[in-house]
Design a protein around this nucleic acid. Structure first.
Lengths: 195, 195, 195, 195
DNA sequence: GCCTAAGCGAGACGGTACGTCTCGTCTTTGA
DNA sequence: TCAAAGACGAGACGTACCGTCTCGCTTAGGC
């Protein structure tokens, strides 16, 4: 690619792609979703508008792309050996992701936009949410393998019951979701599980 | 212009107000949040743009106004004499409101927009969500008064645990929330409450 | 926004109109037809692009408008009492208009553009060239009335024979058209007329 | 051009050059000067844009190139033995060239463009107009050699007086220039020449 | 029964951002 | 070494709405 580079026949410019994604991320965090325009992204990234329109149909597509694997990286629950420990850590991680992480800001913006954009909603679920659900379920899968849980338990519902509370407080009520909230939540939740 | 009225000195035109609110509601349902512009609302309502800007600072203010007491009307749980019945009916009502009601569409749009508009988020909570939380709690309040529940129970948290799941499925995962889902949810939830 | 005026219901802004026309004129003279863009006209005139698009379909329409009555003002031949004097003065005026006048620059640009724009060509003729031909003919009309010319003379053709040479040298060969050229041209032309 | 050639080390492709020139000519006639873009020429010619930019600085250079010797071919007056016959034929040929010939369309486009492009104007004159003037003068040169004309006559001016009228009517007034116009023009012009 | 002032429909205004188009440059790959 | 293919930065295009402003009409209370 050399120093500044201006395109070639076989393939797009990875430098331009990265510049756009970073510019979009920065502008979202700095000026919010409303302050995020293609015009500004292009200016900030030092890229022509056409280059953006060539590769991304809309600004939410840029965000989806910028979002990338950030969620997987931030929200893959580690194995602490017990369901309680796993869930405590994971819920804290989810809360942290949603409220303080840059990628979490992108996530919230996308979920917000998905409320008035069904196509985005579908892509968001297919691309990220389905995979994240599987990661959210990992502690339960491991607990089940360890024999900590009854095989009759509806794992998917159990997962949702925990994740929902954190999301509800962040997306709807706006209440804080500190460790002082999530740890007792897990502790009061576990005894309600069969076995 | 004709004879039908153009304002007067003492007070605004209720006809214009209603026309704006209805136009906003219709346009939101028909064309989504993106297709909702002041220009179109004015045209549809047969009202001058200035009349809108005179009374509402932004289009979300119009929606907040159009939203009005719809939530209270649709989501005030009736007293069926038992916590189980109350909750079953209420959760079904909430799910129905969120997924099929016109006012529910406005609600989802506002919650979505609130993800990238903190000022709206605050007003939404102050204006509607706090009051709705009190309504959501009514079945528990009545159950407590009846002695169905232990006084040690954290009612607010209990309410959130139920409401969160419905919201999570509607706002995030997009899964259906039918009676086949909500009734078992209530049934499996109640036994986990103390006493 | 400033207090200085922003439009009202009954009529367009004459200030905005004038600013656009002057900006277009200036830019044409300074940067040529290629350097004349709606974008730059709007910027120079301190006017919104939409204001230009609202009132003029294209940039040649602006030039046609800016052109206005400039040709009539500059090229109406005065009556000097004799055909020779009238024609000498008028041809010198035409040459001067075509080569040094700002409106003449606009005229040349429009004629140039008309070579690849039949619609413009038609409008240019209908709006300005037909009227100018009548003005060009005035010296002959007066000479005929005075009895200086034979009634059998084809006045229109005589007019064209003189005008054509000046235009040809300006538009095609680019040769200078000074008084040293036009005066002898008239002097050698007159004796060829009948009577 | 097809598959038979894609660059070699021994000079540029004549096939590509011809394809470009023909494509430019066709597009000018079909879509006018405005519809003539490098992009479209490249597409029509089956040639890479860079190949065009490598060899021609601008689209008017392509036209100049495409114009080539067309004017010389079309507008070299044959010798009919008399000035009157030569001029009648030549003026008719010029009128035909300007109004119906493809190369004439290119010529008009170039002259039009030259009105707002001084560099093109200079090149057009140096490359083609000066030579054409000499060709236009041939009938007079021959008449002079035959003794049909006085040696005191300003041949260049005489030539211009005839050519100017045809150009003026084509480029400016848009009036038709049929044989019914040009023949009488010549007939009424000749008697005004000094023996 | 006028006077007057606020509300109204209408719409022009200066702007911002949109998404499209063409331009001329640059780089890679193949013949 | 040149031609092809095509991505790139640049920037003008015409459109849609934004929020502000002015205009002249309508209309209800107060004089």
């Amino acid at each position: 690619m050399g120093a500044d580079h201006h395109g070639n026949r076989y393939g797009r410019s990875e430098a331009a792609r990265q510049a756009v994604l970073e510019a979009a991320d920065d502008l979202l965090v700095e000026h919010g979703f409303a302050g995020l325009t293609i015009e500004k992204i292009a200016a900030r990234a030092g890229v022509a508008k056409q280059t953006i329109y060539r590769w991304w149909p809309s600004k939410v597509d840029i965000l989806l792309d910028a979002f990338g694997d950030d969620m997987a990286k931030a929200l893959t629950p580690a194995d602490h050996g017990s369901l309680a420990a796993d869930l405590r850590e994971h819920l804290a991680a989810v809360a942290d992701f949603l409220t303080t992480n840059d990628a979490g800001a992108v996530y919230r913006a996308l979920v917000g936009q998905a409320q008035h954009d069904p196509a985005l909603a579908a892509r968001l679920r297919d691309t990220h949410l389905a995979a994240q659900h599987l990661r959210d379920r990992l502690p339960f899968d491991r607990a089940l393998a360890r024999g900590e849980l009854s095989p009759t338990l509806d794992l998917d519902l159990a997962v949702q019951r925990l994740m929902a509370v954190v999301h509800y407080r962040v997306l709807v009520t706006g209440e804080p979701v500190s460790r002082e909230f999530t740890d007792p939540l897990v502790d009061s939740f576990l005894p309600t599980l069969p076995l």
